[in-house]
Design a protein around this nucleic acid. Structure first.
Length: 215
DNA sequence: GCGACAG
DNA sequence: ATCTTGTCGC
């Protein structure tokens, strides 16, 4: 599928409109956090694979997995990732129940219109969500050793974190989560790149390998 | 106009 | 994101 200027302008307007009505009335209650869902996508040739993993924080293990292979609905455009990865991810996440927080391999409000993929998914699902990305789309990082805030126009919209021995990543609220809750959430997730997301990443790549193997 | 730009 | 071998080091 090729890019479409009219469509992109429309979805940018939609992002701005949704942003205007978003409110922080309900917030994730961290003491009730038991199960997570994480989602990631991988690409190969003309296909993409999306994997969603339900993860138990207490047991530290996978409770359930879902995958799907499809052709990307839209090309990658910085700021409009939700057009590309949102539709298949929603399809999978809706199949899970009994979870309290969604982990997305993308930005949340750390986005030009504060409407990253993690915000969009949380909003559509009406569930708490956060975004975790490996590179910055917008914002200035506070200097530091392994942890710091990320500012956009003087406002704290997220945090950067660099675990010992692994690469830096950025965390920002998606939906029903306050920026002030991010440090505590990172701590609850083990102060490292979340295992639940790592599993979704590995799984999405695996289904594409298996697809290439049999064909 | 130029550069930057989640996955 | 993905294309990709060997190589440095715990």
């Amino acid at each position: 599928m090729e890019r479409n200027e009219i469509l992109e302008e429309f979805f940018i307007d939609l992002q701005k409109a949704i942003r205007r009505i978003l409110k922080v009335e309900r917030r994730l209650r961290l003491e009730e956090l038991k199960n997570l869902v994480s989602v990631d996508a991988a690409y190969r040739g003309r296909f993409m694979a999306v994997a969603a993993v339900k993860w138990s924080l207490m047991k530290g293990e996978v409770l359930d997995e879902k995958t799907m292979i499809c052709e990307p609905p839209y090309p990658y455009v910085p700021g409009l990732l939700f057009l590309r990865e949102g539709p298949p991810m929603l399809k999978l996440i809706k199949e899970f129940d009994d979870w309290q927080l969604l982990l997305v391999d993308a930005h949340g409000i750390l986005h030009p219109r504060r409407m990253g993929l993690a915000v969009f998914l949380g909003f559509i699902l009406d569930k708490p969500a956060i975004g975790l990305a490996k590179s910055l789309l917008v914002g200035e990082e506070e200097p530091g050793e392994s942890f710091g805030r990320v500012f956009v126009e003087g406002e704290v919209l997220g945090y950067w974190f660099k675990p010992r021995g692994s690469r830096k990543f950025y965390v920002s609220p998606g939906y029903m989560v306050g920026v002030d809750q991010i440090p505590k959430i990172i701590s609850i997730l083990g102060s490292r790149y979340p295992e639940a997301l790592r599993r979704a990443d590995m799984l999405s790549k695996k289904v594409l390998r298996d697809l290439a193997k049999q064909s």
